[in-house]
Design a protein around this nucleic acid. Sequence first.
DNA 1: ACCTGAACACCGTTCAAGT
DNA 2: ACCTGAACACCGTTCAAGT
Lengths: 179, 179
Amino acid sequence: MATRADWEQKALSEVAAGGLARLAIPALARSLGVTKGSFYWHFQNLRQLVGSALRRWEEMDRDALDEVHEIADPRRRLIALFRDAMHKRQAHALYVALSAADAAEVRSSLRRINRRRLRFLIEAYRELGFPPKKARDRATLAYAAYVGALHLRYQNSGALRRNDDLDGFVAHSVETLIP
Amino acid sequence: MATRADWEQKALSEVAAGGLARLAIPALARSLGVTKGSFYWHFQNLRQLVGSALRRWEEMDRDALDEVHEIADPRRRLIALFRDAMHKRQAHALYVALSAADAAEVRSSLRRINRRRLRFLIEAYRELGFPPKKARDRATLAYAAYVGALHLRYQNSGALRRNDDLDGFVAHSVETLIP
DNA sequence: ACCTGAACACCGTTCAAGT
DNA sequence: ACCTGAACACCGTTCAAGT
């Protein structure tokens, strides 16, 4: 017997490990010790499983942001965010793996996550004294750099895969993006 | 009768439009007026088609870079690159669509493209007078911002989809990333 | 040289039947 | 309430046979 949560967790780790394309019901069923027919008692279809799993993931991402948000100094808060981006593989690999999906549910999740992070950044820059428009532009640039760095690091085809000068890169980025 | 090139071009436009997941041999065959069996005379399998198509794409990307490279002033060269990123949908949609693929051929293509673009940026920053290490860090940051901006703009779940303040954003980014 | 058409394995989905 | 097992459509792949 497998619960909804079981399916969702297995799905998340499959996607983080092998991408959305490798997600298959028979494999999940086998590793849960049931037949694939049982899947359809819990979910209407594969898309719905992905959608449900993503809600879990959104919560995790929100919690991570909230944790960083508790840092009072906006400078140090931003630095913590960039540093995390280069060091929490499992969490960010999911973002990267999902980012090219065309399923509507995945896109909605990504949209919500992107908006939340962007608001987080805008707020930090406002606290640093940026006027509204400039805070938004700088936050957007910083978030673009953040997203791009995630891709380059966790995509297996990028430039930031080695751990060598990662600290140097983060330091330089912080210096450039945060006055 | 369909040539290799026919299959490759149809494949590229399919992927740019609907992502790698929507690429299917029967659909390609139908739109080329042949049966799917004929596909296997030209290619060993779907992966190989994708690999071949990507070589075409790499050429296009290289040509685009070369064109920008003809701009003598490194400042103006970098600005042109960022501006293009926000305005050449078709070309960049492919990069975004492919960036989460796990096929080995796709990853190799992306790696080559990423390296070429990064070298391009490093060279520009060196011409601007940056010392080697700093040129590399700044170029990496700029490329991360570039890649992230592509994703946010062409991914249907990002923050840069509207055309409103795109120019403002580009201007601010250029100002921040280029001294 | 290039293609058809039938075949097979595999995955998503449905559903009647089991406990 | 939760699952099995068989069925079906669909896609990737193979291959003998056609022109």
